[in-house]
Write a protein that binds this DNA or RNA. Structure first.
Length: 840
RNA sequence: GCGAGGAUGGCGGAACUGGUAGACGCGCCAGACUUAGGAUCUGGUGUCUUUGACGUGCGGGUUCAAGUCCCGCUCCUCGCACCA
């Protein structure tokens, strides 16, 4: 059935653009008639346009508008092409801020539950979102702190546990000694807790992890994805794949030390070894004389916070263990040191040090007077380990390397040293080819209250036992003391904690940690398709039809974690058999960040947060939307400056008058295509191309150009009624995605009875774009000397003749001879003139 | 240090495969209408020693022609950062 819409109420002034009056009215009408509701089951083309859901902070600021309005315009644009577009919205509702706010309130003597707070804020934000005038289909809304949502986190957790993708192991966590809590990495800024400002300590605790490293290689493959290069590069660097070899050194005591190196060709230059202070062999290797010093160093390293390590820069510290190892390639005896520049968390936690060819090892060797042995000689130079002042990491010829002397080596073309050495090591069983990643497994445990309970129990007899699927959800209890104590708040809730072992039926303890909120955002887009489904997380039929997501938009700040986790999770879902594809988002576009007027990141503490409400009240939502699009390239962002909003506001007032006022009709239309008609179709072509490519700023500029053309046509004696009518219909239709309210109002005032948002996007009439005359620029020696107006089809000879006839051109040609004539059809003429020797 | 992106009027920013630099808007200047205007409309607006010259961070180069291509720098932003 065709939805019909109402004419403006009689009381409203008909002649003036009054955004406040029309915007709320249309929002109500759209909502009442459900024009944005998507029937997911219907046949036809589908397009899943997803924009990142917000954390319910309870306050929608300009940044949210900047993320939302252009995305909405792009989604509306797509929808006007006759495709069904799903454009849903929800809330990323678990997480620390609500819990911390509740803690703060409690300290001030007020009792507020994070759940209450969260749902209140969601209600507020939904109202604020409505003001923007988006086409969100709220019937698909999801809220991640709802048990109907997070129960499926628990199911996925169990599936991953079954497949060995979820496991528990000791891990070092960020500990905030003031807030008495574990912090996520992203909450640690410059080594301090983002809320307390306290120096973060490291603590070892048993933690749940997801085995994302199993997918490292697959995550490096972005084929088929239309994503910004920047994001792909960031993820690639984050995963940090390095190829090299693992080599086994034996200690004099008979222990084995494995090292990873990307430069096995420098093995003969390994003059010492370094272990991370936490390395398990440190104690064994340490001799009695060195023990005291070593233990002091190990203890100091454990105490040292991240910030100490960072501010220290490149200065090397370390201690000799007194122990020695044997270099397996030549039997040389090398001292073993410990130093904190070697990280226990990367590779094997121990390295062979080749000071001649590694900057860090070089600095260490010079600090402690260790031997430097050159094993690669650069072209045209002979290095001496005793006198060199910097390490050399480039290509060269191997030296002092036994059987490999004279081999070209390095990472460049024609260097084969690395491959030959690896093969040689493998033959002798002392080393093997090895790939190492910087990426670590995803630590999912959080010692906080406001998150999804992890569905595991601990039984004294049976150990770690998963909760049976039938017992899900494990509901997060509301009556929990969540003041920070250093333990997971759920630990103190006896009723929650006490469980029976699913295996033996004996007494058991429930896991009291909750899940990282990135768990929610790793699959939430599937849930929009079936938010109320009770017998499973994902509707397979709908998922096949609608996913992967066609377009995903959001801030760059999620370039790594969220987007990488989402990709990982989708691959897991594929392997579990839930979906068929392995990539969640086919196309990705990032908006830039809107900064405060002081050019700083907006934050409450800086007091530079821009509230859009006063602007909306003064100018209307359409103007704020369009201004945010007009301000510059979307992906660029930039400092907020409201100065220019007047221009957009004036533009809408002019469009309003042009459409609402009496048409400036003339009886006779000039021959050929009128300027106005050409302007209309140029605008269609340009705006279409711009919106296709997310160039919202130039799309708005094009619409302004069309408005100028209409104003000019009106002033210059009008247009035929058909042409004028076409211009009005067109500018309103092109405006619809960008400024949905004014477009809808004007559309109805033009006499239409159905919504402009159900219209089809116009196509340019190619014939109307053709000009019959064109302007040529005439240059002499590349400098502009005149212009000529010619028929579009004028032959080259005519163009040249006309160009030479221009008096100012003739002046510059005079006294020389034309040596070359360049004619770019429809654009310009360039005459290359050489001064003639006879000229005066 | 490594990686990515950027630098264009007073300001935000345009410029497709090299082809009239500065679209569109802000601001500013002048005028019109007005009792009034910080409303609206019209015109102008890169710089200068203005029949011309110079202009897209700096220095070279290729080309009839360079914001755009090549070489060498400077500065800024973002990401990663003792990753072996």
């Amino acid at each position: 059935m065709e939805p019909t819409t109402t004419a403006p109420p009689a009381g409203e002034r008909a002649d003036r653009y009054d955004p406040a009056a029309i915007e709320s009215r249309w929002q109500r009408t759209w909502s009442d008639q459900g024009i944005y509701r998507v029937d997911l089951d219907a046949d036809g083309d589908t397009y899943y346009f997803l924009t990142m859901y917000p954390y319910p902070s309870g306050d929608l600021h300009v940044g949210h508008w900047y993320a939302t309005a252009p995305a909405d315009a792009a989604a509306r644009f797509r929808r006007m092409h006759g495709t069904r577009v799903l454009f849903p919205m929800g809330f990323d509702a678990f997480g620390l801020p609500a819990e911390n706010a509740a803690v703060r309130a409690a300290r001030a003597g007020e009792q507020v539950h994070p759940a209450t707070l969260t749902y209140e804020r969601i209600a507020t934000m939904e109202r604020q979102f409505a003001q923007i005038g988006t086409m969100f289909d709220w019937s698909k809304k999801i809220v991640t702190c709802d048990p109907d949502f997070y129960r499926w986190n628990q199911l996925f957790f169990l599936k991953m546990f079954e497949r060995g993708l979820a496991y528990r192991k000791d891990s070092v966590v960020n500990w905030d000694p003031v807030d008495q809590t574990v912090l996520a990495n992203e909450q640690v800024i410059d080594g301090r807790g983002d809320r307390s400002g306290a120096l973060v300590e490291k603590r070892r605790m048993p933690q749940w992890h997801f085995r994302i490293t199993d997918y490292a290689d697959e995550l490096l493959d972005f084929s088929g994805l239309d994503w910004p290069e920047k994001i792909k590069t960031m993820q690639t660097n984050w995963i940090g794949r390095s190829e090299g070899a693992e080599v086994t050194f034996a200690t004099e005591g008979g222990d084995r030390i494995e090292v990873f190196t990307t430069r096995p060709d420098t093995l003969w230059g390994a003059t010492f070894m370094v272990l991370a202070p936490e390395h398990p062999l440190v104690s064994t290797l340490t001799t009695p004389e060195q023990r005291q010093e070593v233990e002091a160093y190990v203890e100091a390293a454990a105490r040292r916070s991240e910030i100490d390590r960072q501010t220290e820069g490149d200065e090397k510290t370390g201690v000799f263990t007194g122990g020695y190892a044997i270099n397996p390639v030549d039997g040389a005896r090398v001292p073993v040191w410990i130093a904190d520049y070697v990280l226990m968390t990367y590779g094997t936690g121990s390295i062979m040090a080749v000071p001649a060819h590694d900057a860090r090892d070089f600095a260490f060797a010079r600090t402690f007077g260790l031997r430097v042995q050159v094993v690669i000689q650069p072209p045209g130079e002979t290095l001496d380990g005793a006198t060199m002042t910097a390490s050399y990491a480039g290509d060269g010829v191997m030296a002092n390397s036994g059987p490999f002397d004279g081999t070209r080596t390095g990472k460049g073309e024609g260097a084969e040293g690395i491959d030959l050495v690896i093969a040689w090591l493998e033959e002798r069983g002392i080393g093997r080819r090895k790939v190492t990643y910087r990426l670590r497994d995803w630590l999912i445990s959080r010692q906080r209250y406001w998150g999804t309970p992890i569905p595991m129990v601990y039984c004294d007899d049976c150990g770690i036992v998963p909760t049976p699927e039938a017992d899900l959800p494990i509901v997060l209890p509301t009556d929990v003391e969540f003041m920070p104590t250093g333990q997971s708040p759920l630990t103190t809730h006896e009723g929650f904690r006490r469980a029976t072992c699913p295996t033996c039926g004996g007494a058991a303890q429930r896991e009291t940690d909750t899940m990282d909120t990135f768990m929610d955002s790793s699959w939430y887009w599937f849930r929009y398709l079936a938010p109320d489904k009770h017998d499973g997380p994902i509707d397979g039929t709908l998922a096949r039809r609608w996913t992967p997501v066609d377009m995903y938009t959001g801030g760059v700040e999620h370039a790594i974690l969220h987007l990488l986790y989402a990709r990982f999770f989708t691959k897991v879902l594929r392997d579990i058999g839930v979906v068929e594809h392995g990539e969640p988002f086919l196309r990705l576009r990032n908006q830039g960040m809107i900064l405060g007027e002081d050019n700083e990141k907006m934050s409450k503490s800086r007091g530079n947060v821009v509230n859009p409400d006063p602007l909306v009240r003064e100018y209307g939502a359409d103007t704020v939307r369009a201004y945010l699009m007009f301000i510059g390239p979307w992906e660029q962002g930039g400092p907020w400056n409201f100065q220019g909003i007047e221009g957009v506001s004036r533009f809408f007032h002019r469009v309003w008058s042009l459409v609402v006022d009496a048409a400036p009709t003339t009886a006779a239309e000039a021959a050929g295509v009128s300027d106005l008609r050409r302007a209309v179709h140029t605008a269609i072509a340009e705006v279409t191309a711009d919106l296709e490519e997310f160039r919202f700023n130039t799309a708005v500029a094009e619409l302004m150009t069309l408005q100028n053309a209409m104003t000019r046509a009106k002033a210059g004696g009008g247009a035929s009624s058909e042409v004028w009518r076409e211009a009005c219909d067109t500018i309103v239709t092109l405006l619809a995605p960008i400024a949905p309210h004014i477009a809808e109002e004007l559309w109805h005032r033009l006499g239409h009875t159905t919504s402009v948002h159900l219209e089809r996007w116009p196509e340019p009439d190619r014939a109307a774009l053709v000009r019959d005359t064109v302007t040529y620029a005439v240059q002499v020696n590349g400098k502009l000397r005149g212009e000529i107006e010619l028929g579009a089809e004028a032959p080259k000879d005519d163009v040249l003749r006309a160009a030479k006839a221009v008096p100012n051109v003739a002046r510059y040609v005079e006294g020389g001879s034309i040596v070359r004539e360049i004619v770019v059809p429809g654009k310009l003429v360039n005459l290359v003139v050489k001064p003639s020797p006879t000229a005066a």
